[in-house]
């Protein structure tokens, strides 16, 4: 097994599927010779040629349309949107077209498309690069939304996403790209979409989270342990659809839960998780389910970013409110 960063694991997954399936095409802005602005597609054009891995003109909506059209010709497109803040330019292709293809055509056509895109705070980007917009995507029926938190998960989830016959939005947290290495098998493996992973077991409190907040939550769980609280950390991995069984089983065990997201508090993934817990496990709860999230503003400029982003201290504070309720 190799030690890989998340970005290396992503490249490895793309290479694996480009090898496995001649219908897989990787394209987007600067993904060819340049290997992508984060080097996610490093070396792929060299290995698979310009027919399979290619640069597009600089237009996100056009990239979305290309994905729809190539999908209609039996390809399995894996376009990159250079930063997810640019997604507004391609919203029609995603929500208006890809997500509706199966229904609109009575099942004749579908969209086996995986849109990859970096997002996430803590790396001091200019505006419109870091926003967590997974909530927008999750509200669109017909899409799956995946957010890995580790190199191992990143590879297995991306392979599953590419093989999925429906559109998948695969979001890569920029802070996690090179923050740590992990053992990642060089051979292929898949992680099913829609399945959460218990990253740490516990019995007093369920911390349900995803993306970079998995690591803040694990840090918080360690601190809470020192104070005698045993926290379970659930990494959703797929934020739409969520793994309701794992969430409910955990909450029924612990009786207490918080939901942690980097995104703004309003609407979004955490709100949905809280609502589902209320619908399904209210009688198991010893305390209200609280959320840790960013304030309801757009993503902060770099100077205010550190305070804006939720961190392990916020998680401990909210966790204790629920533990001591």
């Amino acid at each position: 097994m190799a030690q890989m960063t998340m970005i290396q694991a992503i490249t490895d997954a793309l290479r694996t599927e480009l090898r496995n399936d001649p219908n897989v095409l990787v394209f987007g802005e600067d993904v060819g010779v340049n290997g992508g602005v984060f080097r996610a597609t490093e070396g792929l054009q060299n290995e698979f040629g310009e027919e399979r891995v290619f640069d597009t003109p600089l237009a996100e909506s056009g990239i979305g349309g290309l994905a729809v059209g190539l999908g209609l010709q039996g390809y399995r497109p894996v376009p990159e949107i250079q930063f997810f803040g640019f997604v507004y330019e391609v919203m029609d292709s995603i929500s208006g077209q890809l997500a509706r293809m199966r229904y609109r055509s009575g099942g004749r056509y579908h969209s086996p498309v995986t849109i990859r895109s970096p997002f996430g705070g803590g790396v001091h980007t200019p505006e419109m690069h870091a926003d967590s917009l997974e909530g927008l995507m999750a509200q669109q029926p017909g899409l799956k939304v995946v957010i890995p938190s580790t190199p191992y998960d990143a590879k297995g989830l991306l392979i599953s996403a590419i093989r999925d016959n429906d559109p998948v939005i695969y979001l890569e947290h920029m802070k996690l790209y090179r923050s740590f290495r992990q053992e990642v098998p060089e051979e292929e493996y898949t992680i099913p979409l829609g399945k959460a992973d218990i990253k740490r077991e516990g019995k007093d409190l369920s911390i349900i989270t995803y993306g970079a907040m998995v690591h803040e939550s694990l840090k918080a769980a360690e601190e809470l342990e020192k104070e005698g609280f045993s926290a379970e950390v659930i990494d959703l991995r797929t934020v739409s659809p969520i793994d309701i069984e794992t969430i409910i089983a955990s909450v029924e065990k612990t009786g207490r839960a918080i939901v942690v997201q980097e995104a703004q508090k309003q609407a979004g993934i955490a709100a949905n998780v809280v609502a589902e817990i209320n619908d399904r496990a209210i009688l198991s709860l010893e305390a209200p389910v609280l959320r840790v999230a960013a304030p309801d503003t757009v993503f902060a400029f770099p100077q205010a970013e550190t305070v804006w982003l939720p961190n392990y201290k916020d998680i401990i504070e909210t966790g204790k409110k629920v533990l001591n309720f």
Partner: peptide, 19 residues
């Protein structure tokens, strides 16, 4: 959606060319 078919046509045509 007015115009959406234009970008998709580029995709279908590119697919035909590749095939």
């Amino acid at each position: 959606i007015i115009g959406a078919q234009y970008i998709q046509t580029a995709g279908v045509a590119l697919g035909m060319k590749k095939r």
